[in-house]
Design a protein around this nucleic acid. Structure first.
Length: 428
DNA sequence: TCTGGGGTCCTAGGACCC
DNA sequence: TCTGGGGTCCTAGGACCC
């Protein structure tokens, strides 16, 4: 660990704090019985594995694997299986991030379970270790921390911390250390290098991150576009992706779900699509944004080779930016009517709103005959009630009452932190 | 029987203009 | 014989991430 002071004088230092097996760890926080036991979390519809505890990983359970394929394995090993509980994970994520914020000047919350931290003022492993301990004490979530000059290198450092360091902390504090690490780091594990690109790299004989870093930049640019070059430069220690502490406005917002049961009738699809459209509108209002496009897409089941496949999508451009539920739902329904075919069975439907701009920048149109002030009032009342009483307590009539197209979630853990009725009772 | 959802960025190609 | 070509805007699709 010596040499950290030398490195501190080099300016930019970034730490990546990444929660270990986040969803599985969340399930454990309120259920100590499953500590040290194999735990997996399933995707929507209880479809595939999206999180695994270390014990589950050791059993050979793979990420993304359909649960039905490994039913026997899960049962034989008494694996604790949970449906996703995003309300719980989202809330624990906020607590983790807020805890980290007490220890650093700048933080970029990168995803539900990761944050980049500014360590430029002082970088060493001890500082990371203190943060790690504090997060565990305050939230019960274990995190690992990787420290380096750039985000891409911090990602590598984090991998190493998770895999090889008992304390879960690792810092690149010399060029020699970086070289030795990259030399044994598989190119496909680099941030930004996915399955397709790593496959092509290997065809050219590039297997390690070090080989990638040392490849001619022009050749990389030609074969792997500007992104490849950016990754390469970050590996050399040049900051291409600075810390972004202001969350940029989303450019698209999408709500979509697969159905528990396939759907044929237009009437059901109308309920689904209005519900998704309403959810997009609510997300827009939460972000204080408006959209200028609304699209609807449908999809048949791509895994069923026996039925006719159909993946239609229809987009409407608006003249006046909106985040009004009623308006967005009515456009979405119009789009649905255009693409619906009665001779298909559908597995999935979704709504995307795009060309998003700040609410405050919206301009009035001469030809707009909607009473927008009144609509704004209605929406804000609905939002307030729903925030207090629970999602969809107030909704549009067209969304339907039954939601029998909704998700299958057979193994949902209680919403310990976000729903009063589910709060953990502690006896003293 | 059962196969996630929500994002971003980049590129190629068409339309259009001069 | 020779059938421009560069810029811009838009969109669809691919690749990636978590």
């Amino acid at each position: 660990m010596g040499g950290s002071n030398f490195y501190n004088s080099q300016g930019n230092m970034i730490a990546l704090a990444d929660c270990n097996n986040f969803y599985a760890s969340c399930e454990r926080v309120f259920n100590p019985k499953i500590k040290n036991k194999p735990v997996v979390v399933l995707s929507n519809n209880d479809g595939c594995i999206i999180a695994r505890s270390n014990e589950a990983k050791k059993l050979g359970i793979k990420m993304g694997e359909p649960a039905f394929k490994i039913k026997n394995l899960l049962e034989k090993n008494n694996v604790n299986v949970y449906s996703t509980n995003f309300a719980l994970y989202g809330d624990l994520s906020k607590r983790v991030m807020n805890t980290i914020k007490t220890e650093v000047n700048q933080i970029e919350v990168y995803s539900i379970d990761e944050a980049f931290l500014d360590f430029s003022d002082f970088a060493d492993e001890e500082r990371a270790f203190l943060i790690k301990k504090k997060v565990y004490k305050w939230t019960g979530i274990p995190v690992s921390v990787g420290i380096a000059k750039t985000k891409t290198l911090a990602k590598v450092a984090n991998h190493i911390a998770k895999k090889y360091k008992k304390e879960g902390v690792f810092m690149f504090d010399s060029e020699d250390l970086i070289r030795r690490a990259l030399n044994v780091f598989p190119v496909e594990d680099l941030w930004g290098i996915g399955r397709k690109i790593s496959k092509r790299l290997k065809q050219f004989g590039i297997y390690t991150a070090l080989q990638f870093r040392e490849t001619d930049e022009k050749w990389i640019k030609r074969n792997f576009s500007i992104n490849g070059v950016k990754i390469q430069r970050e590996l050399k220690g040049e900051v291409i992706y600075p810390l972004e502490t202001l969350r940029p406005r989303k450019k698209n917002i999408c709500t979509s779900r697969s159905f528990g049961k396939e759907v044929k009738e237009l009437s059901k699809l109308r309920e689904v699509v209005s519900s998704h459209a309403n959810s997009c509108a609510t997300k827009l209002r939460d972000e204080k944004s408006c959209c200028l496009t609304i699209s609807v897409f449908l999809s048949t089941n791509p895994f069923n080779s026996k039925v006719k496949q159909y993946y239609p999508c229809r987009l409407f451009n608006l003249d006046v930016p909106t985040n009004d539920s009623i308006e967005i739902v009515s456009y979405a329904l119009k789009a649905l009517e255009r693409i619906y075919r009665s001779d298909c069975t559908y597995k999935k439907a979704g709504v995307i709103v795009g060309r998003i701009i700040p609410e405050s920048h919206t301009q009035l149109s001469l030809f707009d005959n909607l009473d927008r002030d009144k609509r704004r009032e209605i929406n804000s009342i609905v939002d307030t009630i729903n925030r207090k009483m629970g999602k969809d307590k107030v909704k549009l009539a067209v969304q339907g009452k039954t939601r029998d197209w909704k998700l299958r979630q057979e193994r949902l853990s209680p919403c310990y932190t976000t729903r009063f009725a589910d709060m953990l009772q502690v006896r003293v």
